[in-house]
Design a protein around this nucleic acid. Sequence first.
DNA 1: CTTGCTGCAAAAGTTTTGCACACGT
DNA 2: ACGTGTGCAAAACTTTTGCAGCAAG
Lengths: 175, 175
Amino acid sequence: MTDARERPAGTYPVTAVSEDDGLIQPMCAIFRRFLKRQGLKFTTERAFILDAVLSKQGVFEADELLAEMKDAEHRVSKATIYRTLKHLLEAKIIKEVLIDSSRAHYQLAFGRKATGHLVCMETNQIIEFPTEELNALMERVCKEHGYDPLSHRFVIYGSSPAAKATEQAEVGDEG
Amino acid sequence: MTDARERPAGTYPVTAVSEDDGLIQPMCAIFRRFLKRQGLKFTTERAFILDAVLSKQGVFEADELLAEMKDAEHRVSKATIYRTLKHLLEAKIIKEVLIDSSRAHYQLAFGRKATGHLVCMETNQIIEFPTEELNALMERVCKEHGYDPLSHRFVIYGSSPAAKATEQAEVGDEG
DNA sequence: CTTGCTGCAAAAGTTTTGCACACGT
DNA sequence: ACGTGTGCAAAACTTTTGCAGCAAG
């Protein structure tokens, strides 16, 4: 049951491993340059989406951005959010994270060391942890098969202490 | 661009790490027992789906099964395939594999050591490799956060030798 | 016979796309 | 002005579900 589908109302409680929020501002310039290079425009909507994305401490999804944008003074449409996410991926400002197969999850791609994700199957809490040590494994496996390594993802599924506590309580109730 | 979407017509060429196909037959009995325990029935359709699943050498998806079932003498509906996949997951005969976020991917859960997946971003080829060494990391991370470990997934993205060759050819064509 | 199962078609959820109009450069 | 971008609504795709008839135990 590799399933984190029933997520608690749009939010992922996340313990991030990010280190420097000082890198956030230059990102705007970086995105701008990226767009110019591609003959694309830096629109108000893209600025707003970038801003929302940069404020994320951990894993997020399109849905979440959409909800935030809906309330904000700047309403941005679903279509624009999806289109902009693609550009942010290409610009390597965000990267995809594999949490479950029903929706796409993203995370900032900069200012953080390689991380894996520890997912609680019950509460959907996601904890990040560093995974530098996996680079060696990636290199080795790629070399063995003649591949050029690009990136890797490591996800652990388990039960959080909170989930176990809840379980206990439920058993008490039922029994 | 963590995207393996444009997959070559329903097939994943896979180099598996499976070891004993001799375990396959008992699976039928195991599934039967599992169903009985749950008050469920072992129907012709379920038998056929189990059979198709057991013949898989590597990663597969619902879509693929559906296509196979369409041609076979036993036509099985989409709905039944999805419903049966859920039971097979619960019975721990198959497990979910995270390859990309657009579709669910599965793999037999037995008769194989823990494996990771090396995915070629261009050709979508998937190579399995053993990942026993990651168990220690899983245990350690879980202990650090008070989690009970359940399972883990490790995916490497890269470019296969074949993809690089194709690229070369294309550059030659264009230039 | 009783209960669960199947197929169909419709629904649901996420992501993409066509189009007319609006906006950066 | 030109070429892109945006919003909207519809389409595409994967997965789920309701229902009426069907089959396993």
